Amino acid sequence: MRSSRSIVNVLKGDLSLVGPRPPPPREVADCPSDLRRRLVVKPGLTGLRRVLAAVPCHPNSAMDPP
């Protein structure tokens, strides 16, 4: 159920597929003005690091034996 709500939010444009997690309200309140620029980025369902971890670094690495 939760994932279907998240997909609906992506379709509405409230979330992106890949992006940072939304910051907690306290973090937003304590954020210095020079760092608020990063809060403009639309939050996502998953982070870039997780996506990149799923991609093999070398084209033949999936073929290599364990």
Rank of each mutant, 00 (worst) to 15 (best):
S3I: 13
L39E: 11
L52M: 15
S16C: 11
L17D: 06
V10M: 08
A54S: 15
R36E: 00
V55G: 02
G44R: 13
L11A: 03
P56D: 14
P43Y: 04
P32L: 09
C31L: 07
E27G: 02
K42G: 01
L11W: 09
P59G: 02
E27D: 15
H58C: 12
I7V: 12
R50M: 07
R5F: 10
C57I: 03
C31V: 03
A53Q: 14
D34W: 08
P65M: 10
P32A: 09
N60V: 14
L15G: 00
S16K: 01
R49S: 12
P22H: 05
P20A: 04
P32M: 12
P43S: 04
A29H: 12
L35G: 02
G44A: 13
A62T: 13
V55L: 13
S4E: 15
S3N: 11
D64A: 10
P66K: 08
A29D: 05
P32Q: 14
R38F: 00
V51A: 05
P65L: 14
M1C: 02
P59E: 07
V41Y: 01
R37W: 06
L48V: 15
P56F: 10
T46R: 11
N9R: 14
G47K: 02
V51D: 07
N9G: 05
I7D: 04
V40Y: 00
H58P: 01
S16E: 01
R38D: 00
P56V: 14
C31I: 05
R2F: 04
M1R: 11
E27F: 07
R37T: 02
G44Y: 07
E27K: 15
L52T: 11
R26S: 12
R50E: 08
R2Y: 05
D64G: 01
V28P: 01
L48G: 14
V10L: 10
R2A: 08
A53H: 11
R26N: 09
P25F: 07
L45V: 15
R50I: 07
P25K: 10
P65R: 13
R38M: 00
D30H: 14
P23E: 06
R2C: 04
S33P: 04
R26Y: 09
L39I: 04
R37V: 01
T46V: 15
A53D: 13
A53K: 13
P65S: 07
A29F: 11
P56Y: 03
P65Y: 11
M63D: 07
R38T: 00
A53T: 10
L11F: 14
R26A: 11
V8C: 07
V8G: 05
L48N: 14
V55H: 03
